[in-house]
Design a protein around this nucleic acid. Structure first.
Length: 525
RNA sequence: GCCCCCAUCGUCUAGAGGACUAGGACUCAGGCCUUUCAAGCCUGCAACAGGGGUUCGAAUCCCCUUGGGGGUACCA
């Protein structure tokens, strides 16, 4: 009986079982997961996906989702990225329960504000013989690695200072030589840890290095900081990128050295670049000559809807239901289960994102789509949002371009013609004004006939105009497509445009006639 | 080099030894519809990396090979 899986049907929402343990009742209580980014740049999709799974698991189990800032690398630190990180999470709708901005019972949630804590715990390890001070200079370490490479040996600290006699140690301290604290990995034996998705993983301790725990500047490295915080903050599940798998044995050893119980480890598969080869780069990259998006804000700026993005990302590395591609947040929460995460790396199916996004765009009420579109149109058409907000052309045109755009940034090219003056329209391609299977003379005639219809039609609305045009085309024995074509070209200057009659209605009688006049002059001249 | 992880259509995935003639989705191709472009509907192309085992039976379990990925910092 595999009843311990949270996915099992019909279970009480409040008792999510996990490996036979009811996590909602266990120990301190709820599941606690954290997203712990390093503020060194913009949030990329890999990080966002990790946060998403954290969030899903917390909501699923009615536990807590914690945001913690791991800013211990002062060289790469970028102050703006904390804001950017939070914006990215909020954009996707991932609200955290504890974090640097809102505080919480385990504050601070910023590691540089916890420096004394780490120093205290580093000292504990030294006292217990699990760590030691190392006085090696970076020059020495560099030379050592060069030597190891030259001899085709694996690189790694040679434990020089681990063997330092007490007298030497005291002398160096007295001389004030700067030092770091290194973890003392057992020299023999194996370390076994469990990854939820991969099972037990065994590593020979001789493969492990005496990694630095506390740097010369007094700040911890990830290995110390994350373990101490995860313990102190009662984290029950560590979700992190697969790039941490190799250091997981070290982390297990650190937990053991402190005598703590290891949280459940879940290493999420890396996200590959679109070629499927190579980890997706944090920096904008190109594959096969094409640029691909990788950062959270780039997806927002390209006009992907948060709900679409959410839906999309949930299905990379996990699967909601092979027969249901479209689902909402609540449904995802209900079904999500850590154990079902697929451990193999995946490329992002960008085309599927476009498709999903187009679905979500179409599902939006027109008024909401308009709201979402305003910043894009404002920027791209160089008009103020206020001006666009009250523009009735948009109210007519948005519903008809709704099923034609895959991303919000595509709307402008469907609408730009409506915001030009008649003489700004360019008829670069002469064929633009000539109807299908018609010649120039016939097209001129049609434009004239149409213009007179437009002068009289009442009300000046898409449906009535449509009727009038269709009747006239039939009367003249011209196919609708051929008859309508010249008008499309005349008023939009484009071969492809929103539906003709809504476009005419949006433009209004006067402006439409002006454009037809211009087109006629173009054709005749 | 060494260590670790992973392996189903081009891509995201379903698959828990028999229900697999391997299912769904995106993309692509063809058709219908049509006022351009879309949307919609229908049809189609397309995968168990290879080799050994185990078993009455393997996409599924084991081993090897190959391929891919990750790590190998006083970065995270």
């Amino acid at each position: 009986m595999v009843g311990y899986l949270a996915r099992s049907q019909g279970e009480d929402e409040r008792s999510v079982l996990f490996r036979g343990i009811d996590m909602t009742q266990h120990g301190e209580g709820a599941v606690r997961v954290r997203f712990a980014p390093s503020p060194t740049g913009h949030l990329h999709l890999g990080g966002l996906r990790t946060a998403l799974f954290d969030w899903l698991w917390a909501r699923k189990t009615e536990g807590q989702f914690i945001l913690r800032i791991e800013d211990t690398d002062r060289k790469r630190y970028d102050a703006d990225s904390v804001t950017s990180l939070m914006q990215g999470l909020r954009w996707l709708g991932l609200e955290w329960d504890e974090g640097p901005d809102i505080g919480g019972p385990y504050a601070s949630y910023v590691q540089t504000e916890r420096r004394e804590i780490y120093q205290k715990y580093a000292q504990k390890l030294i006292d217990r013989g699990h760590a030691y001070r190392c006085y090696c200079t970076s020059e020495r370490l560099e030379a050592m690695r060069a030597e190891q490479r030259r001899n085709k040996r694996p690189t790694g600290y040679d434990r020089h200072c681990r063997r330092l006699a007490d007298a030497m140690r005291t002398r160096r301290e007295a001389e004030g030589i700067p030092s770091v604290v290194r973890f003392a990995v057992p020299e023999a034996g194996v370390t076994v840890f469990t990854d939820l998705l991969r099972g037990d993983i065994q590593v020979d301790n001789r493969q492990l290095r005496d990694e630095v725990l506390l740097k010369a500047d007094g700040l911890p490295t990830y290995h110390l900081a994350a373990m101490v915080d995860d313990f102190l903050m009662n984290i029950t599940h560590i979700l992190r990128g697969e790039e941490w798998l190799a250091t997981a044995p070290l982390h297990k050893l650190i937990y053991d050295a402190f005598g703590w119980e290891m949280p459940v480890l879940v290493h999420l598969p890396v996200i590959l670049d679109p070629s499927g080869k190579g980890k997706m780069s944090k920096r904008k990259r190109t594959v096969a000559g094409k640029e691909y998006l990788a950062l959270a804000h780039e997806f927002r700026d390209a006009g992907y809807l948060p709900d679409a993005m959410f839906n999309f990302l949930v299905n990379v590395g996990w699967n909601f239901d092979p027969d249901q591609e479209v689902f909402g947040r609540e449904e995802a929460i209900e079904r999500f289960c850590l154990e079902d995460i697929n451990p193999s790396a995946a490329a992002l199916p960008y085309e599927k994102l476009d498709w999903l996004n187009s679905l979500y765009i179409r599902a939006l009420p027109a008024s909401e789509l308009k709201k979402a579109l305003l910043p894009f149109l404002s920027r791209q058409l160089q008009l103020s949002e206020d001006e666009l907000e009250t523009d009735r052309k948009l109210d007519i045109l948005i519903p008809v371009i709704q099923e034609r755009i895959k991303r919000l940034d595509e709307a402008a090219e469907w609408l730009d013609w409506a915001y030009l003056d008649a003489d700004e329209i360019s008829y670069s391609d002469p064929k633009l004004l000539i109807g299908r299977k018609l010649n120039a003379a016939q097209s001129i005639e049609i434009l004239r006939v149409g213009a007179s219809l437009l002068e009289e039609v009442d009300p000046f609305a898409a449906e009535t105009i449509h009727q009038a045009f269709r009747q006239k085309a039939e009367a003249l024995g011209v196919k609708a497509g051929g008859f309508f074509g010249p008008f499309r070209g005349a008023i939009t200057g484009k071969k492809v445009s929103p539906p003709l009659f809504e476009s005419i209605e949006a433009l209004g009688r006067q402006e439409t006639l002006r454009r037809i006049e211009r087109a006629l002059r173009e054709l005749e001249g």
